[in-house]
Design a protein around this nucleic acid. Structure first.
Lengths: 155, 155
DNA sequence: AAGGTATGGTTGGATGTCAAACAGTATGCT
DNA sequence: AGCATACTGTTTGACATCCAACCATACCTT
């Protein structure tokens, strides 16, 4: 006869097998929690971590083109199209014609974009503080250092 | 006159502003790289990290119901519906009628599901090893410990 | 026993993401 | 100068995910 699977006691806690030992799994859990708090913090502004990152990178590199933004954010070029559509619709970002190349768009923050980014950065700083509330300054540094050692060849 | 934004030198490297100091950002980068390697490792099996996690949890808790799986995987209940649809279509998981409750489904791995999971676990172990290639055993432990300190209240 | 409330699974709509295919433009080779 | 190749932004289609609404079933209070 076939081996019967013993069912679990419905009142028992769920167990996670070998998952908790996996770094990839723990990272995923942490990121889900972070995303949640991030969304809650910036709730009223309709800004995701990805959009925030894009704004920061555009401000730091005014005039960059979409493909460069895609590489920097690790997004597909086609995803960047709708991302920029979104930000442009909200008048936070402008697509200008690039200097020497009629194919590419030179991206820039509008004054409104810069102003909003300032506010967001304050909120993100608060979020980051909550995220790291249980970590000493030293631990935070260690954490970042360790994270950077994961697949450094992909950066 | 309005303040002109100084455009960046097109030949220069892209800079990332304050992003690299953010734990949330570094975590995101690491996770993207991990996801990429994971997908490449299990490429032929059409299994995402989420699906793998679900299989592990179902095996470790045979007979659990979809809502419990949703909580365990941090997915929405509606997402679990299509996830289980997927696995059931591939005959890896079964929805059985639960013992005392006609609303809920008792989830179980099929023999094929168990067999596949065995193979996957070997591949995931390899993936995990690659991921941690630059980390000593001690560092790996430290990393997991630090990750667990991020929003522990959400676990 | 009956009614209201809570729970389990499902559906439909919105969004974010990737991958593949495309047209316009630039670059390089001969 | 002309042609092949590469790159830029875009469109389309597939998929995962969330949220809100829904129906059926279970539970609880009286």
């Amino acid at each position: 006869m076939p081996p019967k699977t013993k069912l679990r006691d419905p009142a028992a806690e769920i167990t996670f097998g070998a998952l908790p030992d996996l770094i990839g799994y723990q990272l995923r859990l942490a990121q889900i929690a972070i995303f949640r708090d991030f969304a809650q913090t910036l709730g009223s502004y309709e800004i995701s971590p990805g959009l925030f990152g894009a704004l920061v990178i555009i401000e730091a590199n005014p005039g960059l083109k979409q493909t460069e933004l895609a590489r920097a954010t690790r997004l597909d070029r086609s995803t960047v199209v709708s991302l920029v559509d979104n930000l442009e619709r909200r008048a936070l970002v402008e697509r200008r014609s690039a200097a020497g190349d009629r194919r590419s768009n030179a991206l820039q923050l509008t004054p409104a974009g810069k102003a909003l980014l300032k506010k967001l950065q304050r909120l993100v700083a608060e979020h980051e503080q909550r995220l790291a509330a249980n970590l000493s300054a030293k631990e935070q540094l260690t954490l970042v250092k360790l994270l950077e050692k994961i697949f450094p060849e992909y950066r």
